[in-house]
Each structure stands twice: as structure tokens, then as C-alpha cells.
Design a protein around this nucleic acid. Structure first.
Length: 319
DNA sequence: GTCCAGGAGCCAT
DNA sequence: ATGGCTCATGGA
């Protein structure tokens, strides 16, 4: 990936598809990093349920990645990233945002069927991130039978209480890293329950202990196969097929992983099996054979499309 | 009050 | 293998 210096990033925005005034950007100074991108929908990507720590600020977003405060915008024909320490190493942010991804190639790898075409058309610019494995695992252990806003709330509480403070822009409210596995392993179940995570507390604690002790080498799982990584993750209490697939897809680089939650289950049944009702096993086999090497992307499009439609229907009924 | 949420584990068929 | 039940918690 190219990582031009901070001064390389003030294209006059001959934007073919947008052009908000520069003043709309809430972050001071020039961006630290910039990559030319078309079709990078930050709202769909950062708030669509794959990551839980991004907060909208003006037309941009801010969050904490790998222990550093990050601001990000995609409004000027480029993905632009602000950080606090302008001199330190850039720290894998290109990898996190998958800035060099050839989205068109991903779309070309999809099967050519009507439901997926519709989802891609409705969610143009939806991307996948590559998150830190421990944060991803910990967050998704908290996700079971929870709505996305509540997952975000629990994660924020956890970070504020047990995460290390990170440097923030002058005058900015304090921000915190996602707690290390070591720190959470040292928490009591009671302390975790006090973060309102309910019955998930012992699951998170056990996962933290295994990662902290080295019994589970998360980063090492990337070097193996999807099946191997999934199986290793599923040995953790509270981690079944769905959460394991989320971690494989969102943090370990396995683009074929296809998490099936209640939304995706509804989408698959409605769109691909409107008549008969496939068994869970049969449906899993379908997801593995039909969607190809980037099936995880396809899954995210189906997921997001379903939720957009549900939100539209909700709005139409007047709330 | 009732139902549901980016589930998982356990137990009885 | 499959179908129920339970596990906290908060919002609609």
C-alpha cells in the first residue's frame, strides 16, 4: 500500500460523486495518511456491526485502533486518516482499513444471482475491516443475543474501566484502548458482570485467560486454515460456529468465513429457499459452496441489506 | 407485560 | 441429529 506523507493529501477534490466543503472535516490539520478510494462507505463499514468502537463526528468518524486514537473520513475522494502522534510509525492502519482492496474484484468473484446483486447494489461501498484478533474475539463473545447498540455500550464500559488511556487531540475527551487479555484475565467475574454483560462474563474471562497465558495463540491462527482456526476458537466456552466465523472473517484474514446469525439466516431462507426449509447443516453447506472465496463479503452485504430494509420498513410504519 | 437481540450449551427425544 | 430451555440485560 502507498502511505504518502501528510502533505500528499489535499487533492482539490474534483470528486465525481461528492464534494462537501473542507470545513466539514472535524479534525485539525492535514491527514496523516491518505489513499485514493472510490466506494468506501464508512457508515456501513464502521457502524454495520463488524466493529463496535467507532463514533460519528460530523461527516467523519473517530475511534481507537491498535491503541491509538484515529479519525477517518472518506468525503474527498480519498480515505483520509488522522492520528495524534504525527511522527511515530503508521502502525498498520492501511491493513486495518484494507485500503488497497480491489472491491470490484471481490464483487466479480460473487455468484451471479439476483439476491446478491440487489444487496451489492444497495450497499455499494460496504467494506470489511481487518481488526485486532483479541478485540474482535472479546467483542463478539459479548455479542450473543445482544443488539448492536448494546454491544457498543458494553464494550465502551469495558474500555473505560480496564483499557489503557491513549493520547488524544488537544482538548479532546479521554479515550481508551480495548483492554488487553492480560488485564481482563485479572478481572473477577463480578467486575466483568458489573459492565452489564450478564452471563457472558465467565466466557470473556476464560477467553482472556487462555489468550493471556498463551494457551491460545490468536495471531498464529492466521497462518493455518479456516477450518483449523474455527475449531481452535470453538474450544472456548461461549464461542460457537457463528462467533468463531466472525473472528475468522473480521480479524484473521479468512475471507471465505460466512457467519450465520439470525439476520443472515432470515436472508438466506427468504432469498434462496423461499419454498422448502433447509436443515441447519444443509444451509451451512450451501453457504460454503455457493458464495466463493470472498463469501464473507457476500455475507456482509446480505446482512447489511436486510438491516437497511428492516430499518426502512420500521420508518415507513412511523416510529 | 411481551418480545427480541450479529448465540451457545445442555438435555430430552 | 434435532428441538426446547435457560442464561442477563435493555429497548421497542
Amino acid at each position: 500500500m502507498n502511505e504518502p506523507g501528510a502533505d500528499a493529501a489535499s487533492p482539490p477534490s474534483t470528486g465525481a460523486f461528492e464534494a462537501p466543503p473542507k470545513a466539514a472535516l472535524p479534525f485539525a490539520g492535514p491527514p496523516r495518511l491518505s489513499w485514493p478510494v472510490t466506494d468506501y462507505d464508512l457508515e456501513a463499514t464502521l457502524e454495520g456491526g463488524q466493529a463496535f468502537r467507532w463514533r460519528r463526528r460530523g461527516g467523519a468518524w473517530e475511534g481507537v485502533v491498535r491503541g491509538r486514537w484515529v479519525g477517518v473520513s472518506a468525503t474527498r475522494g480519498a480515505l483520509e486518516v488522522w492520528t495524534v502522534d504525527a511522527d511515530g510509525p503508521a502502525g498498520g492502519l492501511a491493513e486495518y482499513f484494507r485500503a488497497g482492496e480491489d472491491l470490484a474484484a471481490v464483487h466479480r468473484s460473487f455468484p451471479d444471482d439476483a439476491p446478491l446483486r440487489a444487496a451489492v447494489a444497495a450497499c455499494r461501498g460496504l467494506r470489511l475491516l481487518r481488526q485486532e484478533p483479541w478485540e474482535c474475539l472479546g467483542s463478539f463473545i459479548l455479542s450473543s443475543t445482544k443488539q448492536i447498540p448494546h454491544i457498543r455500550q458494553i464494550v465502551e464500559t469495558l474500555c473505560a474501566r480496564y483499557g489503557a488511556p491513549v493520547p488524544v487531540p488537544a482538548g479532546h475527551a479521554p479515550a481508551f484502548a480495548f483492554p488487553t487479555a492480560e488485564r481482563l484475565a485479572a478481572c473477577s467475574e463480578r467486575e466483568l458482570r458489573d459492565c452489564r454483560m450478564g452471563f457472558r462474563a465467565p466466557w470473556l474471562r476464560t477467553a482472556a485467560q487462555r489468550v493471556a497465558s498463551g494457551a491460545l495463540d490468536l495471531a498464529g491462527l492466521s497462518a493455518g486454515t479456516l477450518g483449523g482456526a474455527r475449531a481452535a476458537l470453538m474450544e472456548l466456552p461461549g464461542v460457537g460456529r457463528k462467533i468463531a466465523d466472525c473472528v475468522c472473517l473480521f480479524s484473521l484474514g479468512f475471507d471465505a468465513a460466512f457467519p450465520v446469525d439470525v439476520w443472515v439466516l432470515r436472508a438466506l431462507r427468504r432469498l434462496y429457499f423461499p419454498r422448502r426449509r433447509p436443515t441447519p447443516r444443509g444451509l451451512l453447506a450451501f453457504t460454503e459452496s455457493h458464495f466463493g472465496p470472498h463469501g464473507g463479503h457476500a455475507q456482509q452485504y446480505l446482512f447489511h441489506h436486510m438491516r437497511l430494509q428492516a430499518a426502512a420498513a420500521e420508518g415507513a410504519r412511523g416510529t
